[in-house]
Design a protein around this nucleic acid. Structure first.
Length: 468
RNA sequence: GGCGCGGUAGCCAAGUGGUAAGGCAGAGGUCUGCAAAACCUUUAUUCACCGGUUCGAAUCCGGUCCGCGCCUCCA
């Protein structure tokens, strides 16, 4: 069957193949760094990470560019209010974004680019659009005239001829010929940071940055462009208009959009008090892996209902995976190879890959691994699991973790060191040997209170740090 | 009003014509000095509702109800 994606542009599932050989050129819309990025944003970025990893697992090379929007209305408003320069203001949140992304184990795109470092290219693009009569000026600002681009609306599939019924009247302070025209260059307003350019003193609109940076680094036609569903219109629609008006070539071949995340069944908002950043959740004691698991195991085109109960369930699911990994690594198995079990592993592996190939159906992929784990656990209990089955099982887990990346626990800060824990365990074992069970239980309870869980297995005492 | 996503067990969630994956929680059991740990088993005669097509539908068609998103630079 091969890899296929749902393309917003065609509203169909399509087999994926890049334009040039095995190299995939991908542009993903990154954050606007006016505040800490919230968990809903990370749903989209996590989807992009699963996409990256799946492409890599299929043997593609990636040229992935992600932008960071570091000039925008809210940024300017906040920076001015705090008496900071744009750069001073955004660097803090940019760093936070990168730190949070690392905690969530999001692979770094090959290139991350800042809007403010591409002002010249944007100016040049706007000049070229002007030369092709796609723009007009009004009160010092420059707008894109959507009537000049016949395909406008092809991504969002909205009928934009005539008035849009129910749409509110434009209240923008700038004068536009048509309410749906969008700004390419904004004239400076008093007190705002601005660039002096041949277009006048001002700053770029939002949409132009993505067109310019995508084409600069990836070429005029890129393979994949992604973002959240809210970007379909107008942002991505506008990107298409600008880019294709400029080049006359298709801008992106596959458009993938992640559905939104809900919190406890409701839209996340500050007024409802259900607005979470990653730091909020980490502060409540949840592990980054749990958050990553919850964000990635619901397929990206389905609205994700994010709940704290869901986080606990995610932590328990990860524990199940890790427990299996532990048994696989530590138990002794008989010599030989169980053919039926190996066939089960191969079937699970096939289902895992087919799930991912089917528009990144992560739920299906994960289910395949869990099914196998249940069978393998049973086989281990009954002695049917043999040493020869170990490599196959390990491969399945490794291919799972190459995508989901949740098996490795995040190192906890503070608390007892490994050697302290092991010393306490040795002491408890001594007590158990001499049947001082009260003392042994005391040690176990003390460790539990410090977040260390003990398990007495046939192969000895296993310990792990408590995760949530 | 237009465009789009969705309604499957207590919760999360696969499955798009052949008789309901998986995870969590709950219940029972195995192991254990004991155990909150681990492991196993079990949990939807039914897929929002009403019609229709079909030998057969959660899956296709028509209609209804409900949730959510976008339609002014929100992932």
């Amino acid at each position: 069957m091969g890899l296929q994606f749902y393309n917003t542009l065609t509203q169909r599932l399509e087999p994926f193949s890049p334009l040039n050989g095995k190299t995939v050129r991908m542009y993903t819309c990154g954050p606007t760094v006016y505040h800490y990025v919230h968990i809903g944003n990370f749903r989209t970025f996590s989807f992009q990470d699963i996409l990256r990893r799946t492409l890599l697992a299929r043997g593609f090379q990636l040229e992935h560019v992600m932008n960071i929007t570091d000039v925008e209305d809210k940024i300017i408003r906040n920076a001015v209010a705090q008496g900071k320069s744009l750069q001073e203001y955004t660097s803090e949140y940019t760093k936070a974004f990168l730190d949070d992304s690392a905690l969530l184990r999001l692979e770094r795109p090959e290139r991350m680019v800042l809007a403010t470092e591409h002002i010249n290219e944007m100016v040049e693009a706007i000049q070229r659009l002007a030369a092709k009569s796609h723009t007009y000026e009004s009160e010092g600002s420059i707008y894109f005239r959507i009537a000049s681009f016949k395909d406008y609306g092809k991504l969002s599939h909205m009928n934009l001829s005539g008035n849009v019924a129910g749409a509110r009247v434009d209240v923008d302070e700038y004068e536009k010929d048509d309410a749906r025209d969008f700004v390419l260059w904004k004239a400076q307003k008093p007190g705002e940071p601005a660039w002096e350019t041949p277009l006048g003193t001002g700053r770029p609109g939002w949409h132009i940055e993505c067109s310019v940076m995508a084409m600069k680094y990836l070429g005029e036609t890129i393979d994949i462009h992604t973002g959240g569903v809210d970007l379909v219109f107008p942002h991505h629609e506008n990107e298409i208009a600008q880019s294709e008006a400029l080049t006359g070539k298709p801008f992106a071949r596959y458009w993938l959009h992640a559905e939104h995340l809900m919190v406890e069944g409701q839209k996340m908002s500050k007024s409802l008090g259900n607005f979470y950043t990653l730091r909020d959740l980490l502060g409540k004691g949840y592990a980054p892996e749990s958050i990553r698991y919850l964000l990635t195991t619901t397929p990206y085109r389905k609205q994700l209902n994010f709940t704290l109960d869901g986080l606990k369930a995610a932590a328990a699911s990860i524990e199940r995976l890790r427990n299996f990994q532990y048994r696989l690594d530590n138990e002794n198995f008989g010599e030989g190879l169980s053919e039926p079990l190996e066939a089960r592993q191969e079937a699970a592996s096939k289902k895992f890959n087919e799930g991912l190939d089917d528009d990144l159906n992560t739920a299906e992929a994960a289910a395949a691994v869990f099914e196998y784990i249940r069978e393998a656990n049973s086989a281990m209990d009954s002695g049917q699991f043999l040493a020869g089955n170990r490599p196959g099982a390990a491969r399945l887990l490794a291919s799972f973790d190459a995508i989901f990346d949740v098996l490795r626990p995040t190192a906890s800060e503070g608390g007892m060191s490994d050697s302290e824990i092991e010393a306490a365990i040795a002491e408890r074992q001594q007590a158990r040997k001499s049947k001082q069970f009260a003392k042994a239980d005391q040690i176990r309870n003390d460790l539990l209170a410090k977040g260390v869980i003990l398990e007495d297995t046939r192969e000895g005492v296993r310990w792990k740090r408590k995760q949530s």
